[in-house]
Design a protein around this nucleic acid. Structure first.
Lengths: 192, 192
DNA sequence: ATACTTCTATACCGGTCGGTACATCACACT
DNA sequence: AGTGTGATGTACCGACCGGTATAGAAGTAT
């Protein structure tokens, strides 16, 4: 059934499954039982397991970028949006669970051996950095963020810290320093 | 052949293989051909694929902690050791390849579903933070690191930044900001 | 009602997985 | 030389993998 709405719903379920168990840890049988669709229908709609995975990864990217853009915008100032977003993404229990970042999971499991996954992951991180670059530039124009460093550098630093935090969160190694670490990182944006 | 020296060499080869391809991506056939030992010998020495993986993970932990301890110590001061170590671990091409951190790989691939792996990964990160805590405390005593923040927080921040950088490095998303980011992070340690 | 078309689901394919039974072989001791 | 012992490698096991051929069900036009 190639109706787009059902395809999107199936993609979301597939994303959840791949997110939890990885690519190799998710079998077609798990997919059929979770999506409620049998294998031939999946192959008719997506072509292969890898194509389904790539589609789920692309959906994750658009969801993530959209979420971050909205979070950055819904604030009284560019700097306030940055602070709010970084705190939310670095805080331990803010996400629905400690699943980490799906793009990171994909990068570690497959990027070394699958050029398509590598390309998609690079795009995801590039867009994520780009969104933060825009916000940092606006905050710099407002005088709320130091201007002696390139916005690209500061944005990359924020993304770095966020991804690092989501790793540590997954290993339950963070004791509760999440919020304090976010505050400290954000101090780096202050004018000296 | 249960001689320890050969077991250690086999473990190192297994570690390389698991590091490159992950747990599920490494088959017993790959292990036998790389270790130069047939399957029954592997099972006689380690018991199972999972046990072999855990042993490799433990060897990685001792290697990593030892390396960091040595790097922190081989410097004229505690602060200099911290700077040197963080710069080395965050710099893109310093590692032999962009394989990332094996503990992180394990955490993302298996920690959610294998409590033994989770425990080992938690221990690894806890020891890594502990090593940095010791260094930060010494540097604080020297007056080379701000004392208005807990050493645990600062150490966790450093490990966070390092792990984040090693993720981004794997996706080739960092453009060359690695060294600049390390410098910026290290500024956070300065007395205000 | 019947013939035709379209989507679904069962059943199966070759290949590979982790793990093991067993035959073989090298070697020490008498 | 003969015999016992322990490690090695081959050959195989059932289970499961991703993917597909094909039978069956549901709906529509006539």
């Amino acid at each position: 059934m190639p109706r787009k709405i059902e395809k999107d719903a199936a993609l979301e379920h597939a994303l959840t499954l791949f997110w939890d168990h990885g690519y190799r840890g998710t079998s077609m049988d798990m997919l059929t039982s979770t999506l409620g669709v049998e294998k031939p229908s999946i192959y008719a709609s997506f072509g292969s397991k890898q194509a389904l995975y790539l589609a789920a990864l692309a959906q994750y990217r658009s969801w993530l970028i959209g979420w971050v853009q909205r979070s950055l915008r819904d604030a009284p100032s560019a700097r306030a949006g940055i602070d709010r977003t970084v705190r939310l993404m670095m805080a331990r229990s803010s996400r629905k669970s400690r699943k980490g970042c799906f793009a990171t999971n994909s990068a570690l499991e497959l990027a070394d051996h699958d050029p398509l996954v590598l390309k998609e992951v690079r795009t995801t991180f590039a867009q994520l950095v780009a969104v933060f670059v825009t916000a940092v530039q606006a905050a710099q124009a407002d005088g709320d963020v130091r201007s002696d460093r390139a916005p690209q550098l500061l944005a990359q630093l924020l993304v770095n810290a966020i991804e690092g935090a989501r790793i540590m969160e997954k290993s339950r190694a963070v004791n509760g320093h999440g919020a304090a670490m976010a505050d400290l990182i954000l101090c780096l944006l202050d004018r000296h």
